[in-house]
């Protein structure tokens, strides 16, 4: 499979948020605005690319029985690095994402891609898979964040679209996250079903 095909496949056909339904906690927890969602997506993408590359590189050295703990340690190492970098260079971002930064360790996307992809492919396609999955995740989070921000406070990425007092606060709060994600997944499924039908016809 070539590089770009892998990216497309991981980002669209196996979109981690809309199709595989992985990594739901940061998806719901950090998307109160488009910027927050995007930063969380990019942070996860960075760790995912690094961990995919590293795991694919060491896959022949790791005994099969202890592979999961080894993968977790690799991922945790990169997350700790990210945490230190954010604390040093982007403390404001680190505060707004809060506990969800260390929790990237237990994001099922990372372990899922390590187990399902990186442990079976070479480094280059694992990096492509990391980029693709990460991109799919980032786009999903940004979209969810933008929708919630627009409905909740009438702006996208802090650019005002309509007066804030018209917004429904509900969408910024916890229930809005669940409801909005439910509708987005339904729309994604509808569009996908429509496009497969078109291809068959």
């Amino acid at each position: 499979m070539n590089f770009f095909k892998t990216i497309y496949h991981s980002a669209v056909l196996e979109n981690p948020t809309f199709v595989l339904l992985l990594g739901m906690c940061p998806t719901l927890g950090t998307t109160s605005s488009a910027i927050n969602g995007m930063s969380m997506g990019l942070a996860t993408t960075g760790v995912l690319i690094c961990s995919n590359a590293a795991i694919s590189g060491i896959k022949n050295l790791v005994p099969d029985k202890v592979r999961i703990p080894v993968y977790i340690v690799v991922i945790a190492t990169f997350v700790t690095l990210l945490q230190m970098l954010l604390q040093a260079y982007a403390p404001a971002l680190n505060d707004s994402l809060g506990i969800f930064i260390p929790l990237i360790v237990v994001n099922c996307i990372l372990l899922g891609r390590a187990e399902a992809f990186a442990s079976r492919h070479n480094v280059a396609s694992s990096v492509a898979d990391g980029i693709g999955s990460g991109l799919g995740f980032t786009v999903a989070l940004t979209l969810l964040g933008a929708c919630r921000e627009l409905l909740g406070s009438g702006s996208i990425a802090s650019l005002s679209i309509y007066p804030e007092s018209w917004g429904a606060l509900l969408f910024i709060l916890a229930p809005g996250a669940f409801i909005m994600l439910g509708f987005l997944i339904a729309i994604y499924r509808y569009l996908q079903a429509k496009s497969t039908k078109k291809r068959q016809a």
């Binding site: 669940f178 994600l181 439910g182 997944i185």
Partner: peptide
């Protein structure tokens, strides 16, 4: 409705539950 079956409707239900918890 078909595209809403399974997870989407479950998420919306969870949203309404979260409202109750608020």
């Amino acid at each position: 409705p078909r595209p809403m079956r399974g997870v989407p409707i479950a998420l919306i239900t969870a949203g309404i539950l979260a409202m109750a918890f608020m």
